[in-house]
Write a protein that binds this DNA or RNA. Structure first.
Lengths: 149, 149
DNA sequence: AAAGCAAAATTGATATATCAAATATATTTG
DNA sequence: CAAATATATTTGATATATCAATTTTGCTTT
């Protein structure tokens, strides 16, 4: 098993990069707004874009766990950024709608999010980003292969 | 701000890749062993390699938070994989030592961890991995720049 | 050695991830 | 339509991440 060392450091870097990025982005968001997390923003925006989705589909769209989505949505509702219209009992029928406050927040936060991404990728050639992306895509594929060998 | 789309999908892939890899690796570990997490293994191995380190330094070595390390170490001690020799009160003096059970576990688990990494990176050219690694390194750098602009 | 300061370690609170189990709802079948 | 089954959602338990606050320990300086 060659390149063992490369793979070790690669996964270290992978973990550290995502953590540092999240920390950096979260810090910038907090500076401008109160206590909203990146994940909550992600879910909120997804619902804004496609309000017709069920939680299950939202989870898939944002690559997250179902249980996490339940909790994130609850938080967003509690914060008044999201409305659960219709039946509050039957959650499958209740439609989720971003509240005016939620809309405002998304509008205000959008440039910050974009800037975070921009700065995080500053000084990297687009072709390199593409290659890195393809590497990540391949990892995703490899980890989701049916294991039969 | 060009390439907005590329950066969006890049960060999506980044998050998904790390999550899928962890899930995949964790599943394989669980199949062979009981309930030990990747993070616990990482910390355990670090202590095995450099038992003289303090928690602070361990945290830095594995790119983790101090608070997390405190809790992970406590778990490892509770599981009998790690001994806190010497003074159990003064934690700075107490030396951490991997127990025989911990040694055994690391030995047994090592090939699984290596295989996980190998499979996750299967079919990717080493040069591409290097490029991806350099992209991640640059992101880490960008996110840790002193913000004064 | 005592006081004060710096560094290390811990704890509390909250958010998210994960898995398993339990509910609830929808759909299919008889 | 009722029962069986499938799917969606929630909940509980535990682990980790993060930040803030606190405590502990170590070091310096008298």
């Amino acid at each position: 098993m060659p390149q063992e060392k490369l793979s070790v450091t690669f996964f270290y870097f992978l973990e550290k990069a995502i953590r540092d990025y999240r920390q950096y982005a979260q810090r910038n968001i907090r500076a401008g707004f109160g206590d909203i997390t990146l994940d909550q923003i992600l879910v909120l925006r997804m619902i804004q874009d496609q309000p017709e989705l069920g939680l299950h589909q939202i989870a898939e769209a944002v690559f997250k766990d179902y249980a996490s989505i339940t909790r994130i949505v609850d938080l967003l509702v509690r914060k008044g950024l999201l409305f659960r219209l219709g039946n509050d009992r039957n959650r499958r029928e209740s439609e989720l709608t971003v509240s005016p406050a939620g809309d405002d927040l998304l509008v205000a936060i959008q440039p910050i999010v974009a800037k975070n991404r921009f700065i995080a990728l500053q000084g990297i050639h687009p072709e390199e980003i593409e290659i890195a992306k393809s590497v990540l895509a391949k990892i995703i594929e490899n980890c989701n292969e049916k294991s039969d060998g």
